[in-house]
Simulated assay, not measured.
Amino acid sequence: MRVLKQRKMYEAQQETLYNQTFNLDQVAFAAEGLKDAKQTMTALQSANKELKGVMRTVNIDDIDRMQDEMMDLMDRSNEVQESLGRNYNVPDDIDEEDLLGELDALEADMGMETEPNAVPSYLQPDKETELEEEMTLPAAPTGQAAAAQPNWHSAPMEDELGLPAVPRASLRG
């Protein structure tokens, strides 16, 4: 029993010490907060004095005038850039509908050319020229006449100097 009484007494003393320590920590925290507040107040006062001194030298009317001048200069600069960027070859009276029509026609032409194995119209031969070429082509040699012909494919295409080779059959010597 005596041990239980001592234990309760120690627990009560321990609780009192914890409370006292907590109170001391709270006071120290409050004191530190006040010191920080005082430093902040001093900094704000010095900043206030400095701002007042600077504001005496700044005139809002001067700032507004400067802003207006800057806007005028920017407008003049844009006018100069537009003038320099003018295109001399494009007339002013171009109809936008005509341009869109031409663009649509070009897109349609390009759409036809994107089909597989499609040849652009500017690379396709004329029908008349194609028929004439078919009529004038010689027939391929057959039989002994073909054997008598020189083999052009086995002859070198260039000589040692890089010039076109002369066929052996045409050399006389």
Rank of each mutant, 00 (worst) to 15 (best):
A139S: 06
M74S: 08
D93F: 15
W152R: 00
R56A: 15
L99R: 02
G53R: 01
L34V: 12
L103R: 01
T57Y: 02
Q124G: 04
D126V: 05
Q144E: 12
E50N: 10
K8N: 11
A155M: 14
I94C: 04
D75K: 11
R2P: 01
R86Y: 09
P138I: 00
A28Q: 08
V80T: 11
L17K: 13
N23G: 10
R56P: 00
S83L: 15
N23E: 15
N89H: 12
T40I: 13
A47H: 07
Q144A: 00
G33N: 12
A139Q: 03
A105V: 10
M55P: 01
Y10V: 11
A148G: 03
Q67I: 14
W152N: 01
Q81W: 11
V166K: 05
I63N: 03
E79W: 09
L51G: 08
L137G: 00
E82G: 00
A28H: 00
G173R: 02
N89E: 03
E82N: 14
T136Q: 12
R65Y: 14
R76M: 12
L24M: 10
T16C: 04
E160W: 11
L106Q: 11
A43E: 08
P156V: 06
I94Y: 05
L51V: 04
M112I: 05
Q144V: 04
G53H: 02
M66P: 00
Q45P: 01
T57C: 04
M9N: 13
M9G: 09
G53P: 03
P91Q: 07
A165W: 07
A31R: 15
Q26K: 14
V166E: 00
L51E: 00
A118D: 02
N89T: 06
E102V: 10
T114Q: 15
